[in-house]
Design a protein around this nucleic acid. Structure first.
Ligand code: MN
Ligand code: MN
Ligand code: ZN
Ligand code: ZN
Lengths: 153, 153
DNA sequence: TGTTTAGTTTAGAACGATTCTAATTTATTG
DNA sequence: CAATAAATTAGAATCGTTCTAAACTAAACA
């Protein structure tokens, strides 16, 4: 499923050399989000890979360096709108800083506590053996595994 | 191991009816932390159960209601000192709020995203099947599973 | 096409959790 | 009992994030 989305992204990129926005345009349309200059630019940075884990601050810097004029407030708005529309998901690994994940499929993470680097674990290499029952009056929404690593030395 | 610590705590409580501080005193001593009035009081709230998950704010309120005069800064200092000394551990489930866990043994959590309630999963009812290799130059520090639940309706 | 409307962006203020500062108090050592 | 080192504290500062309300822009409509 993830591979499928990535493949589509690549095909679009190849097909639309001269109209590089049509892929993200399509995805914004589907999500019923107006394709404003800012959203298009951020979508282009975010939606053409499914292997990115960014903070708002990082994305804002990246946009700025790429010459995109966008406020930090809009970056936050956009990240939340994209998350709501299932174009992104949020990953909690540090208190006090939110990461947004361009991979919306079910998967787990390795987090380097020294560098702050967050990356995906290939599905095949991890899984949960037994699951507890959800407490009375609740239902399981999602199960998250975080492998916390430290840099050697 | 956890049961052992809990058993010791209970035994101390039974043995020391008239001198209710000796258990936590002992633990502070072992951790080389001076038994100040504030630390003793907080230790008493925290170290006599291994099944509590509190935020700094919560603990500060609880202390205040119990008539313990302690500043929020000291609550933060103490929580971090206890964590460093392995009397507590930190659990990250929400960005923007840190939880401290009186159970320092390896275990996993159920987090109710609607109520903010955090509780332990009994060891037997969950486990990780396969583990990925740590990336080059890193080593695994800990593996965390968080079962996120929602309240029904 | 304009014109209207609703949605979007933005600067800057506000916020909540946490950390820091530097002065005061307290515990320990000799 | 000093003298010393460590701990506490109020309040300021910081940091990530959210809010506000005014200006702007895309879409719908005349
Ligand atoms: Mn959020
Ligand atoms: Mn911390
Ligand atoms: Zn991911
Ligand atoms: Zn726990």
């Amino acid at each position: 499923m993830t591979l499928y989305i990535q493949a589509i992204a690549i095909i679009y990129k190849i097909m639309n050399d001269g109209r590089p926005y049509s892929y993200v345009l399509e995805r914004l349309k589907t999500a019923r989000l107006r394709p404003t200059r800012q959203r298009l630019a951020l979508a282009k940075l975010l939606l053409e890979t499914d292997d990115r884990h960014v903070t708002a601050e990082q994305l804002h810097c990246e946009a700025s360096s790429a010459g995109i004029k966008v406020s930090l407030a809009t970056v936050y708005n956009t990240l939340h709108q994209f998350t709501k529309a299932d174009l992104l998901r949020e990953v909690v690994v540090e208190s006090g800083r939110a990461y947004f994940d361009t991979n919306t499929s079910e998967h787990h993470h390795i987090f380097n506590q020294d560098t702050g680097e967050l990356c995906d674990i290939p599905d095949e290499t991890i899984s949960v053996l037994v699951l507890p029952d959800a407490p009375e009056g609740t239902k399981i929404d999602r199960v998250e595994i975080i492998v916390r690593v430290k840099s050697l030395r």
